[in-house]
């Protein structure tokens, strides 16, 4: 199991918003929902748009390019043209720092 990696400051993300981070060559999207923070792959599995350019809506991230939707908490693709799930990552908060684990 990999180490926890410090990726962002919790205060950098507004509620119902998303940012992109790059860690060890991987692009992740870090979300802040009403009930906490979550992390998924940061590139849309359909046409490789940057999910951080999209918008969080009702617990889903909507791709900015073709409006494919993924459930943030599970990474599941929920509407076409997105069909392939996003990987999710373990995340924890220490103080104001967001840490994720890649494995």
């Amino acid at each position: 199991m990999s180490d926890w990696l410090d990726v962002a400051n919790a205060d950098d993300i507004d509620e119902d918003d998303v940012i992109q981070v790059e860690v060890e060559g991987q692009v992740l999207a870090i979300y802040r929902l009403e009930d906490g923070f979550y992390a998924t792959d940061g590139i849309c599995s359909h046409a490789e748009a940057c999910l951080a350019d999209g918008f969080v809506m009702d617990g889903f991230i909507e791709c900015p390019l073709h409006q494919g939707r993924f459930e943030i908490k599970t990474g599941k693709a929920r509407s076409a043209p997105a069909t392939e799930d996003l990987r999710t990552y373990e995340l924890k908060i220490e103080g104001s720092r967001i840490l994720v684990r890649l494995d």
Binding site: H46, L65, H66, A80, P81
Partner: peptide, 13 residues
Amino acid sequence: PTFFRYAHATHHT
């Protein structure tokens, strides 16, 4: 419907 959605998405890409 489905095929058009994908074709149109390709046009946008």
